[in-house]
């Protein structure tokens, strides 16, 4: 029997949460990917660069999490166990590089839920968008994430 998910959360906005970008986190993230680009890892190269410091890799904003507004909160709202979900799509738009020490504000909302018949059974596609802004309220990045739920 397919499970039912709570589709009433379309349009829901999660409480904004702040993240402070840590130098060590940028490096650990790049190293976990095996991306040893010196602009991420080497403080001296960063200082001499046009950005004046190391910068984060393009997919780094995926580390911006909060207990109240991240994937775990989404699963609770949908009423779905983590074993049923897959990552369907992911997009980042970046308006400027992200540097260590900045505090950024993340605002996530559910923009769409659609159900389709997949090859392996019925599935739901949950689309969430997150806007990331800086201390002067300028947009730094946006994320769009599609979570696939095996119903």
């Amino acid at each position: 029997m397919p499970i039912q998910i709570n589709t009433s959360i379309v349009g829901k906005e999660y409480p904004p949460f702040a993240v402070t970008v840590e130098r060590g986190r940028i490096k650990a993230f790049a190293e976990a990917i095996g991306d040893l680009n010196p602009f991420y890892l080497d403080d001296e190269v960063g200082r001499a660069s046009e950005w004046g410091d190391v910068i984060a890799p393009p997919t780094f904003p995926i580390t911006f999490r909060s207990a109240r507004g991240d994937s775990a909160a989404l699963l609770r709202d949908l009423g779905v166990d983590i074993s049923r979900v897959l990552h369907g799509e992911q997009e980042f738009e970046q308006f400027r590089p992200i540097r260590p020490g900045e505090t950024l504000l993340c605002r996530a909302r559910i923009v769409d839920i659609s159900e389709k018949a997949g090859r392996s059974g019925p599935m739901a596609f949950v689309t969430r968008e997150t806007a990331v802004t800086d201390a002067s309220n300028e947009i730094v990045a946006t994320m769009r994430q599609v979570t696939v739920v095996r119903l």
Partner: peptide, 17 residues
């Protein structure tokens, strides 16, 4: 992409898994 174009140059990147 960044090995080719350099760090800090990506404006948008999106994929389907």
């Amino acid at each position: 992409v960044t090995d080719w174009v350099g760090a800090g140059r990506v404006r948008r990147i999106g994929v389907r898994f």
